[in-house]
């Protein structure tokens, strides 16, 4: 069983659409309301990063259920300027543009798994996973 939704992020309303999709899929998969909220918040954050730093990109949300293990994977990709120092961006308190920052340390705390691939000048891919808790 699985489901996949691709949401292009071009306008600010796309952020709302992406996080609503994420919440809907999480609840359908039996995630708790708290986890669905954490997921929606994480999606909102990475979607806004796309808009602010790369102007446009795509968020893919996929859900899967195998052998009682249910998970949701969110992949956010853009072809923006990329992150020069990923390690630095993941440090608490780091900020990149006038106090807004990427907020990545916070997003990482919302999810179970969190990875970034970024190439300077070529774009960024954030991949994050949340599992359904017993």
């Amino acid at each position: 069983m699985g489901d996949e939704v691709r949401v292009p992020i071009v306008y600010d309303t796309d952020i709302v659409a992406a996080r609503s999709e994420g919440r809907r899929m999480a609840l359908e998969l039996g995630f708790s309301r708290t986890d669905a909220t954490l997921l929606a918040t994480a999606i909102s954050e990475v979607a806004r990063n796309i808009l602010i730093h790369a102007r446009e990109g795509i968020i893919t949300i996929s859900s899967s259920l195998n052998d009682e293990i249910a998970e949701i994977v969110v992949v956010a990709t853009d072809e923006g300027p990329g992150i020069q120092d990923v390690e630095m961006a993941l440090r608490d308190g780091y900020s990149s543009s006038g106090g807004l920052g990427l907020g990545l340390p916070g997003v990482r705390r919302l999810m179970d798994e969190f990875r970034i691939n970024s190439e300077d000048g070529k774009g960024t891919e954030v991949s994050m996973t949340m599992w359904r808790r017993q």
């Binding site: 309301r33 708290t34 909220t37 954490l38 907020g103 340390p105 916070g106």
Partner: peptide
């Protein structure tokens, strides 16, 4: 502020 929202905000550090 709903319980889930409060929880998420604190996790996010806000």
């Amino acid at each position: 502020i709903q319980p889930e929202v409060a929880f998420a905000l604190v996790q996010l550090g806000l």
